[in-house]
Design a protein around this nucleic acid. Structure first.
Lengths: 143, 143
DNA sequence: CTTAATGCAAAATCTTTGCATGAAC
DNA sequence: GTTCATGCAAAGATTTTGCATTAAG
């Protein structure tokens, strides 16, 4: 398992590095991307540890996770005020946090009317940002 | 590649079987689930073909795809009136189509205000249905 | 006949685990 | 010193491809 049953986890060089790296690259990054970035920077962290750390960070609410178009996991440090939704650019990977208050309310309403308990939701938006659209047809990048 | 560049695709025993099987099991099914079901029914279809057929069906808008909690793909025949969103029960896999008109409008508005082009969205709701909740704690099943 | 679909086995991803070693506290 | 974290290599799971064969139109 990934977590200490309960309580704080230890602070280690690797965990600090993963979080730092994730914070550094703004936008979303996958476990593999982070691992490569770290390695490129000469920071030695096992890929396994990156995965485990991201799980921890996600479970403790310090990072957000979204899925890319192929079901892969992408992470980003959580802005600071909880649950967020993003609009990602399909071409350049640029991401924009959007205010989804309206959707939150809608979800609550759906939960109420259907009688489902513990309803949670995932919502992801993807499009082509202004920049990419004007300088039309950039070679497709990450995400 | 999966598709004939343009134009109709051929009707085959396998494709019919996949679609029939997907239609039969209401609720969502994964490629693997369908393949097992078909095999169990004595219908011989390669797993590869199931994958390819599902891609085709999705691309042509005949089925909906959602992602389960682990990024796997689940498919279901599309109800008949386009784009749909679902509320899935985490325990039993029961699924309910929900009217997300409001969300559609919200997405359009976001697209407009951000200037992003070709914005599309994924929205998934998961909770615990009434049944599962009352007969509290059923062993977690699929999905 | 001509072109597309099938199915197998093999590859490619991405992610998780077993287990011995090493680092925190 | 205990307990937890690391990292490797290996296993899993899911999805995709190469290619020869078979079936559709």
């Amino acid at each position: 398992m990934y977590e200490t049953i309960r309580g704080e986890w230890r602070s280690t060089r690797q965990r600090d590095a993963v979080l730092a790296s994730l914070t550094a690259c703004d936008g979303f990054a996958s476990a593999q991307t982070l691992h490569s970035a770290l390695t490129a920077d000469g920071v030695e962290v096992g890929l396994t540890t990156v995965y485990r750390t991201l799980h921890l960070l996600e479970a403790s609410g310090q990072v957000d996770m979204v899925r890319d178009g192929d079901g892969g996991r992408l992470y980003r440090p959580r802005p600071d005020d909880g649950h967020r939704h993003y609009l990602l650019c399909r071409r350049c990977g640029y991401s924009l946090a959007v205010d989804a208050e309206e959707v939150e309310r809608w979800v609550a309403e759906v939960a109420r009317t259907t009688g489902f308990q513990d309803v949670d939701h995932t919502l992801e938006l993807a499009g082509v940002c202004n920049g990419c659209h004007s300088r039309h047809r950039v070679s497709p990048t990450v995400i």
